[in-house]
Write a protein that binds this DNA or RNA. Structure first.
Length: 109
DNA sequence: AAGGTGACTTTTC
DNA sequence: TGAAAAGCCACCT
């Protein structure tokens, strides 16, 4: 059988696949996803990919930073959407506008 | 090709 | 407890 080098595109695909596994009503952190994808040091890359992604099956709104906050981005519009959708799914926000990770962090099975 | 950037995380103080 | 600095590394110029 033929071998093939692991390309960065594979990694990106891998990351997107992981994100698709996050169940509704739960969130995951960038670092967690990076680790699950086998790229423990690439949390930033996860965000970088989410910035571009076009695939509608990827629930990018279920991804938050290590503090449970919705990460900053130039255009605050999608942040509002993210917060709204998560709220609809039952993910509650604290007074400071963060998700309570001890209750809503996704625990892969 | 080399250096700046960032939807991050962890450590330090 | 919380802000600031350091660490990281694929992408983009």
């Amino acid at each position: 059988m033929t071998e093939r080098a692991i390309t960065s595109q594979d990694s990106q695909q891998q990351i997107l696949t992981i994100i698709k596994l996050i169940p509704a009503g739960r969130v995951a952190t960038y670092g967690q996803i990076a680790k699950l994808a086998g790229l423990p040091k690439n949390a930033r890359q996860v965000g970088s990919i989410l910035k571009n992604v076009s695939d509608p099956d990827v629930p990018w709104f279920r991804v938050v930073n290590s503090k449970g906050e919705i990460s900053e981005r130039g255009n605050g519009e999608s942040q509002l959407v993210q917060r709204d959708v998560l709220d609809d799914e039952g993910v509650q926000f604290t007074r400071t506008g963060a998700v309570d990770l001890s209750r809503f962090l996704w625990e892969p099975t």
